Computed example of a mutant assay.
Amino acid sequence: MTDTKQLPPPTSSSKPPHWFSKVWPWLIVLLFVLGVEYWLGWKNILQPWASLSWKQLLIAVVLLLVSYGLRTWRLYDYFPALRPYPVACLRLTLLHNVFNNLLPARTGELSFPMMMKRYFEINYAQSVSALLWFRFLDLHCILAFAIYPLLVVTPLRRLAIPIILLWMLIPPLVYLLRHRVELHFAGKTGRFSALAQQTLFGLPDSMLSFLKSWALTWLNWLVKLLTLAWVLDQFIDGVTWNVLITAVVAGELTSVLPLHAPAGIGTYEAGIIAALLPFLAPAIASSAAINLHLFVLGSALIGGLVGWLLPKPKL
């Protein structure tokens, strides 16, 4: 019988250093900036902005701010405790948006329950559940904008309308069958089960509240996606609105990735480029994607500045 040697337990040296987890996102940003300068040149990429009038840019920025206002309305309508504080509610939405856009790996989402607790004394369970419900509606809406354009360019185009109608039934069915779904997940363990239970906990109390949150979600994304598609169209030629919407949706979908660099740099562009590559040269698609992302980040920063200037609630 041969002796077997027991392997030593792994030491902390086998794990990446603690500082590396904080540095690598910013390293990706640096590599992205340098890579763009090497392959395309920032001067060439930013040149199309010179042909845009300030009126066009102002209208586009205002429309994005309108979408933030619709998002605020959804939050304001969902929580009765926020009714006396509409301005503070807008402040929270604008700051949450800028944190979500700039911080890496979805850490910006943590600002929502923290500010809800700080500003309005709403506990974490309520705010996190509401946020999950809002994100469910957001994802469902964004995917609807992706499904239809993709179907109409395939042999399944005749089924595009029936499929999208079936897709639209998901939120009301979830709401109507929420008690059965809750019973299905009750007592079950696992990450998905816990996520489902917490999301169901965040559903509105009445059908009217549900319809309001759903309608405001659609209004928000209609304004935002159409605005972004129009801005993207300013940087490219010869592309249909179907392609523009698909590209914008692809970029927005990357924002749900669990890991990405600060401000979504690299991943946001990759989503847009992937949708544009069948129709445009790589350099043109890359330049347009970068410029659109700069517009999104710039608008978020303007909204964040406005939110920072707004007064905090006085409870």
Rank of each mutant, 00 (worst) to 15 (best):
T2D: 08
T2Y: 11
K5Q: 10
P8D: 08
P8F: 03
P9D: 10
P9S: 12
T11Y: 02
T11V: 05
K15R: 12
S21Q: 10
P25V: 07
L27W: 04
V29E: 07
V29I: 14
L31G: 10
F32Q: 06
L34A: 14
L34D: 03
G35I: 13
V36N: 05
W39R: 14
W42N: 12
I45F: 13
L46I: 13
W49K: 11
S51W: 07
S51A: 15
W54S: 12
K55P: 03
A60C: 08
A60L: 08
V62E: 04
V62N: 04
L63T: 04
V66Q: 04
V66R: 03
G69V: 01
R71C: 04
R71L: 12
T72K: 01
W73P: 00
R74T: 01
R74S: 09
Y76R: 05
Y76D: 04
D77E: 11
F79Y: 12
P80V: 05
A81C: 01
P86W: 02
V87Q: 04
A88M: 03
C89R: 01
L90F: 10
L90D: 00
N97F: 01
N100E: 01
P104Q: 02
T107S: 08
E109D: 11
E109T: 03
S111F: 04
F112R: 06
M115N: 00
M116G: 14
K117V: 02
F120V: 04
E121V: 02
E121T: 03
Y124M: 03
F134L: 06
R135A: 06
R135G: 12
F136T: 03
H140L: 15
H140I: 09
I142W: 07
L143I: 14
A144S: 15
F145G: 02
F145N: 01
F145Y: 14
Y148I: 00
Y148P: 01
L151T: 03
V153R: 15
V153Y: 08
T154V: 10
T154D: 06
R158H: 13
L166C: 15
W167V: 02
L169F: 12
L173Q: 07
L176P: 04
L176R: 13
L177W: 11
L177N: 10
R178P: 00
H179V: 09
V181A: 01
E182V: 10
L183E: 09
G187T: 07
G187Q: 07
K188D: 04
T189W: 02
A196V: 13
Q198V: 08
T199L: 12
F201N: 11
F201H: 14
G202M: 05
S209Q: 15
K212E: 11
A215R: 11
T217I: 11
W218V: 02
W221Y: 12
L222K: 12
K224T: 14
L226W: 15
L226I: 12
D233A: 15
F235T: 09
V239T: 15
T240D: 15
L244S: 14
T246E: 10
V248T: 14
V249L: 13
A250E: 10
A250G: 13
T254S: 15
S255R: 10
L259E: 04
A263M: 11
A274N: 04
L276I: 11
L276K: 12
F279N: 07
F279Q: 13
L280S: 06
N291Q: 13
H293Q: 04
H293G: 10
L301I: 15
L310I: 00
L310E: 00
P311E: 07
P313L: 10
P313V: 05
